[in-house]
Every structure is written in structure tokens, then in C-alpha cells.
Simulated assay, not measured.
Amino acid sequence: MNNFVHPQAKLGQNVKIGHFSVIEAGAVIGDNVTIGNNVTVHAGTVIGSNVFVSDNCVLGRWPRPAKTSTVKVDQDLPPLVIGDGTTIGACSVLYRGSTFGTEVMIGDQASVREKCVIENNVVIGRGVSVENQVKIGAYTKIQTNAYITAYTTLEERVFIAPGVTTTNDNFMGRTKERFKFLRGPHVKRGARVGGGSILLPGVTVAEESFIAAGAVVHRDTEPAKLYVGVPAKVLRDVPEREKLENQD
């Protein structure tokens, strides 16, 4: 054998494990799971049934901040939980303390930090970075190289285009005062954020708002309005035919 499965790990039926992979103590893996080459499943990680894990992934990693970091590691973090039918792309890193629903798609080289809640049928694209304590609602799609900062909420059926940046710190780390105000954006149901847009700390993007590519959102938006520019301003209403309620 050229992989290691700890005797205290629990494997379901028809589990396939590639070369040079490690399954640590207490890991629980459901039925019909495929684990690629050189994958590490850390202690206690729970993987549902019919999950596909590509090569070189790290699942259930403990946070390890820099010595100068203000982030403190919670020693009581629960295990990583991955729901049934999820697909995890190559070289992805998913931290301990996060929970993934069913049928989630995670692209290659994505990273999801601790204490995140990702609901069913979410798509997290290639190279996306999701920081700690983020909530992502069902059927939300986040495309390639987007950055989702800590303490962000994306409600259900939100669309985040490639290269979107979210921010949470108006003080950029120089004062202790910043901790009282640290807050990521809240993007509400059905909102769409175009490529390369920037959402500033604490803004609320209202239901069905449409943020055009390259816009900088510095204030809360109104529902079902199209915003463009730097800073973002209302251009027009979102057409009725484009709203979620009018989709088949």
C-alpha cells in the first residue's frame, strides 16, 4: 500500500483512494467516495456519500496564523463536514470548522477557511478564496479568482463574477479601533455582482441588485436597480424579465 488509512478512520462501501493519500484518525467517509492522489484528510473530517475529491487536496486543516496575526485559533473547532454529492477540485484546501451542504462544486485551487457555512448546490470557482466566518446561501455561484472576505454573507442565488473583491476593514489593520467595525458585505437574495467589482466594508447589496463590471460599491444599494461606475450609482431598473421570480 502506498497510502495511509488510520485504523480509527471509518470508511463506507466502495471508497476508492489514490496513491500517497493520508486518512487520519476519526475521519468518517461515506459510501461511493473517490479520493485522488496525494490527498490529506485530517482527523475527524466527515465526508458524505458520493463525494469526489481530486488530487492534492487538504481537507480539515487546522488554522495556523502568523505570529503577528490578531486572529486567535479556536481550539474547539468542530470537524470539517462535507455533504453528499460534493465535488472538490484539485489542490483545494478546506479548513476545519466549516460545513458544506449537498451537491457543492468547488473548483481547482480554491480555499475555504474555518467557521464557514456553505449551503446546498453552491458553486465556488477556480482559485476563489473564502475567508473565515462566511455564510453562503443555496444555489449561489462564485466565479474564478473572486475574494470573499471574512464576515461576509452571500444569500441564496447570488451571482459573484470573476475577480470580484469584498472588503471588511476601513482601517486597514493599523488601529485596535477597527475590531469594533470589522464587517464584510451582505449580498442579498438574487443580487448579481459583475466582474472586477469591489464591495466596501459593511455594505448591503439589496435583493436583485445588479452591480456592473468594475463598479465600486461604497453605500447600500436599492433593490432591483442597476449600478455602474466609481463610485457606483443607479443607472436604471433591472428589467422584470431578469428577476428570479420570472425565471423558469
Results as ranks from 00 to 15, higher is better:
14 N>M: 02
144 T>G: 00
8 Q>R: 11
126 R>E: 11
62 W>L: 15
6 H>Y: 07
40 T>F: 12
33 V>Y: 00
140 T>G: 10
37 N>Q: 12
21 S>T: 12
79 P>V: 00
23 I>Q: 03
41 V>T: 02
91 C>E: 12
37 N>T: 12
121 N>G: 01
132 N>W: 04
108 D>Q: 14
45 T>R: 01
47 I>P: 05
124 I>M: 10
27 A>Y: 05
34 T>V: 14
111 S>C: 06
123 V>F: 12
65 P>W: 07
118 I>D: 05
98 S>H: 01
100 F>V: 08
146 A>D: 10
41 V>L: 06
134 V>I: 09
34 T>P: 01
121 N>D: 13
64 R>A: 14
150 A>I: 01
11 L>M: 12
133 Q>R: 11
80 L>V: 03
71 V>P: 00
96 R>H: 10
42 H>V: 03
39 V>R: 00
77 L>D: 05
139 Y>M: 08
150 A>Y: 08
20 F>L: 14
137 G>K: 06
8 Q>T: 07
6 H>M: 00
33 V>F: 12
87 T>V: 08
145 N>H: 15
94 L>A: 10
57 C>Y: 05
55 D>R: 04
76 D>V: 02
20 F>P: 01
51 V>F: 10
63 P>R: 13
71 V>L: 09
55 D>G: 07
68 T>V: 14
6 H>G: 02
110 A>P: 09
144 T>K: 05
142 I>E: 02
105 M>I: 12
27 A>F: 05
22 V>C: 03
37 N>S: 13
112 V>M: 09
71 V>R: 11
124 I>E: 03
111 S>A: 14
91 C>K: 15
38 N>L: 10
9 A>W: 03
30 G>P: 11
129 S>H: 13
93 V>H: 10
150 A>C: 14
120 N>P: 12
146 A>F: 01
48 G>I: 05
26 G>C: 11
84 D>P: 09
26 G>E: 03
28 V>K: 13
123 V>I: 14
63 P>S: 13
41 V>S: 00
4 F>T: 07
23 I>H: 02
110 A>G: 07
66 A>C: 03
86 T>D: 05
127 G>E: 00
124 I>G: 06
145 N>M: 15
15 V>Q: 11
121 N>V: 08
59 L>W: 04
43 A>L: 04
92 S>W: 00
144 T>V: 14
82 I>R: 03
17 I>Q: 00
99 T>F: 07
47 I>K: 04
99 T>V: 09
27 A>H: 10
42 H>C: 13
24 E>S: 05
19 H>W: 04
60 G>Q: 09
101 G>T: 07
77 L>T: 02
150 A>P: 00
18 G>L: 11
68 T>E: 15
12 G>E: 04
103 E>S: 15
100 F>H: 06
103 E>H: 15
10 K>C: 08
49 S>I: 07
51 V>I: 12
118 I>W: 00
122 V>W: 04
54 S>N: 13
128 V>P: 11
47 I>Y: 02
85 G>Y: 05
85 G>A: 08
28 V>F: 08
20 F>E: 04
149 T>I: 13
107 G>N: 08
68 T>K: 15
112 V>C: 12
22 V>L: 12
24 E>Y: 06
